[in-house]
Design a protein around this nucleic acid. Structure first.
Lengths: 215, 215
DNA sequence: CGCACAATACGCAGTTCTGCGTATTTATTG
DNA sequence: CAATAAATACGCAGAACTGCGTATTGTGCG
């Protein structure tokens, strides 16, 4: 039995989707939510499920944000975006957020079932049109973000320096030693770096810095 | 009747492919060539066909070059790459050359038939694994040719899995949650990973794993 | 069967990191 | 001159990580 959650703010569409999925006895719907905040709250209580079908446009917290959070916090959960928006910007954002697949709203039950299986097997289920746009994205370069460099988080020179040392796996003590400042100062720099990068630990900071071309 | 050409230098594979395609009465094979030069010469005499199934690795002129030329000279012909190479570099090159789809060699006749129809309808047929790599291409941005040779540290499957979660910045608690094991077990796995990689903290482990091509 | 090894699990102790508050000095800028 | 930002520094508390020892279960191999 494959456990599926549906996140969709429009009741009618959510219901249709649910009916389509339940046409196969292999699936059960274990969660229904109407926005990103809601599903995350539900997952925090119980994340025993395999797949989430996620709308993009929703109030409170949209599907992109929710996907970013969920793929980070529960990497084993597969997320398939399901939306009426077929533009490259939305597709690109969804992919960057970590979505595993991308379907348009009018798919057949068969295609939806197959897509869920594909996602679980590590594939990338896509609607026809989406697949074409994906290739187009690669071919034309992506909207505004093909340059992995020069992202500005407003880090000062000293902070960048500390970040470089952080990325080498040195302890605060060792960094202090290297930069001829105190342990406490290193800590404060790190705090400021984390705040500016909006992360909460060393690993995420390094990851973000690398992706932003800071290292 | 849909007219198809096969370009493939290994006779046995070409024959298998031909048999698979001819399992459906909707298709006929109008050309067989063993390299890029050959198919282009044939097309110059007569290009009355809809689809070309193209290998990548061939003598004289490879599938990428041929695709570049053909999509330029006869834009209405759809080209589906069919190869054993599933690396991002080849995929990227094929897309840039203008290929409409990308299949791996071991596809079923049904999948091949469906792919031809998809290509004709303006879609982008892809094998499972290729679709995933396409998204990965978009996500990571272009294939960096930094060939990280794979180093074997003797990590077990489970340890590799833990390492992947570690690299995402998850806490032991969160990793335990995701893998459905206890906090203590995660700790033990991490210990073993560190010992095998001969490092003493998370950052060094990730660094070494990335350089060794484990992530 | 005995052995090695992977995967599971927990306790203890010590170290390191993270978040928050507070504070001083120096340089820059409106 | 006043405001602001950067760099320096420390205390406290709690969270997370690391190293070491120990142990059980299952699996594969000679």
């Amino acid at each position: 039995m494959i456990r599926v959650a549906i996140v969709e703010d429009i009741g009618r569409i959510a219901e249709t989707l649910k009916q389509k999925i339940l046409l196969s006895p292999d699936f059960e719907i274990v969660n229904m939510a109407t926005n990103g905040k809601e599903i995350i709250q539900q997952l925090q209580k119980d994340h025993a499920l395999e797949v989430i079908i996620m709308d993009i446009n929703m109030p409170e917290m949209d599907g992109i944000e929710a996907t970013t959070f969920i793929t980070q916090r529960w990497p084993n959960i597969k997320i398939i975006m399901s939306t009426v928006f077929d533009d490259e910007q939305n597709l690109f954002n969804a992919i960057m957020a970590g979505a595993n697949g991308y379907l348009l709203k009018d798919e057949t039950p068969q295609k939806i079932h197959r897509s869920i299986y594909e996602a679980l097997e590590g594939g990338a289920p896509m609607s026809q049109m989406i697949a074409r746009k994906a290739l187009s994205l690669i071919k034309t370069g992506k909207p505004e973000s093909s340059k992995t460099e020069n992202v500005d988080y407003g880090l000062s020179e000293r902070e960048t320096e500390v970040l470089e040392h952080l990325s080498k796996g040195l302890s605060y003590e060792q960094i202090a030693d290297n930069l001829f400042i105190s342990y406490g100062t290193v800590r404060k720099h790190v705090e400021n770096i984390y705040r500016k990068l909006r992360v909460n630990n060393r690993t995420e900071a390094i990851d973000k810095a690398q992706k932003g071309g800071l290292l």
